[in-house]
Design a binder for these strands. Sequence first.
DNA 1: ATACTATAGTTGCATATGCAACTATTTAGA
DNA 2: TCTAAATAGTTGCATATGCAACTATAGTAT
Lengths: 150, 150
Amino acid sequence: MTEEASLKFHMNMGMLINSAQRAMTKRFVQNATDSGQDISLDQWMVLGPIWQLESASQKELGEMCLKDKTNITRIIDALEQKNLVVRVEDQIDHRIKRVVLTNAGKQLFFDVLPIMEKTREEVRKDISNKDIETFKVVLSKILENLTDAK
Amino acid sequence: MTEEASLKFHMNMGMLINSAQRAMTKRFVQNATDSGQDISLDQWMVLGPIWQLESASQKELGEMCLKDKTNITRIIDALEQKNLVVRVEDQIDHRIKRVVLTNAGKQLFFDVLPIMEKTREEVRKDISNKDIETFKVVLSKILENLTDAK
DNA sequence: ATACTATAGTTGCATATGCAACTATTTAGA
DNA sequence: TCTAAATAGTTGCATATGCAACTATAGTAT
């Protein structure tokens, strides 16, 4: 494969992933804004596990969301700023802060769930379940390939 | 599908795309740094078309890279800051600025090409060409689904 | 009991991103 | 010929991200 062909081929995959993610983020925000909700996709992706785990540490949230602890700190900062969550000091281990939904947070969670569902349907329209499955397998394999040790 | 199952399912796809992209970016920077090169994956993804087109406008680069013109401006700012490119005013249409590689930029381009190749091989290790093809088809379909009109 | 190591979370600095509004220039229409 | 609309690119403000270094606390070993 020539250099140019190699360049073109590689850019397609990396660029497609990059572009697809930005497009999904944009569509979610658009659907949320249309419904009067002010939340980004990444904030939503953290809010979900907070609802699900009910009293998660930031470390647990980082693991579940596959996000760096630094970024988890900042996204929780933003959710706290919007009065959707509060940080509660763990009674036993004072290093740990547990993140809990406020009433407004719970309300927004259920308000946004159908928006997430709508966005999901728009994303995967006319794509077979089989192809989605292969897609996720490839993504998981890529993640596996790039997880150290290197 | 229950709400919880729906939440879990959707997060997997969005989260996997998000994580895979960050992992790829990280690995590329790691490989570049190991070889003494100071360039990010997104800068590389713009540098490639600049080399390829030889005298592209910023608009053309945005189209080719599927990136917003705002972001193209900033990435070119960074490349300019590193003396890898220069902006040249178009002789005919003075709104247009054409982006050209400097000698250092050309040198870096060829220095980084094998790094990109190495990263590409690491990314797709043990993934069949058939699955890669399906993967790209799904990504393109997602992009198609999310391109307006909405 | 004390010192060292590890862990949870935070902050500064840097990169990437998009919306909206802006400036400068070109194009189109009256 | 002039005015309005469109286009190319830039900038402010906001969100997301990771590395490195930091603070505070817990765990381990002597």
